[in-house]
Amino acid sequence: MNQEKLKIGIYELTGCAGDALLILDCEKELIDIFNAVDIQSFLMAKSDNIEGELDVALVEGSVTTEKEIEELKDIRKRAKLVVALGLCATVGGIQARFGDREEWEENYKKVYGDIDMTHTRPVQSKPIDEYIEVDYYLPGCPIEKEQFLNFFTRFLKGNPPEKSQNPVCVTCKYNENDCLLKKGVLCLGPVTSDGCGSICINHNLPCIGCWGPLDVANRTAEFYLLQEKGYDVEEIKKKMANFSGTKIAEFFKKVGKEKR
């Protein structure tokens, strides 16, 4: 039987390991998950890991060292499909929020000085698709149970996973919340990928963008709207950058220059 099952590897690069943990937290479904596929490698869950050919590799975390670049390239070579798991793998995570290289180097020096790293050399944090081709993305900080199980099950049954292109606002309205932006609160719902269940706004807290930037969002209008609501330009940029990683660096270069 084992040969017929999909061979899966779950890997963690630089991140909080929250996405891998969430898979283990699917307690009710865990036996079904382990029965449905052949988990070859999953460091958080088991010790007898086999690093061979894979059907699917799920990769969490961003790339922050030269060793991780090698690991990632090796995973890509061995896996038919690679899935970016969570915010860090998808956009680079909070650790990638310093868009340009000089800024990163400056910060790095400030923290570590001129220490020569012997184990591996650190590099600026990047999402995994900076180094390898990625087939599917599961955003989230961390990913969400239902999103993961839906992806996993669709995949198992040969259906392509569906990618949500909606902002958080859609679910937020399903949950019948007042619009916080309308009330003058700095909420990033319209520019953030849906999937979290609008959990913060359900508790009357604004969206901080932790599911990462939505591809199709109208960030410029959001930026000027927040300015009109009285927020400082730097504050808006800081909030928008927090969970955007490297993906909307172009936006930050351009924004603010539209005005004549």
């Binding site: 099950t153 259906n159 902002p167 606002c169 309205k173 319209p190 199709v216 109208n218 209008a221 709207l225």
Partner: peptide, 29 residues
């Protein structure tokens, strides 16, 4: 169009908007 945040809220809160989508949610096991 320039200012629209494309959040879908006008549509979701409208008493006469009626469009819907249908998804398959396969069961595990």
């Amino acid at each position: 169009g320039d200012a629209c945040l494309a959040c879908g809220s006008c549509t979701n809160v409208c008493p006469t908007c009626n469009c819907y989508n249908v998804h398959d949610k396969p069961a595990l096991g």
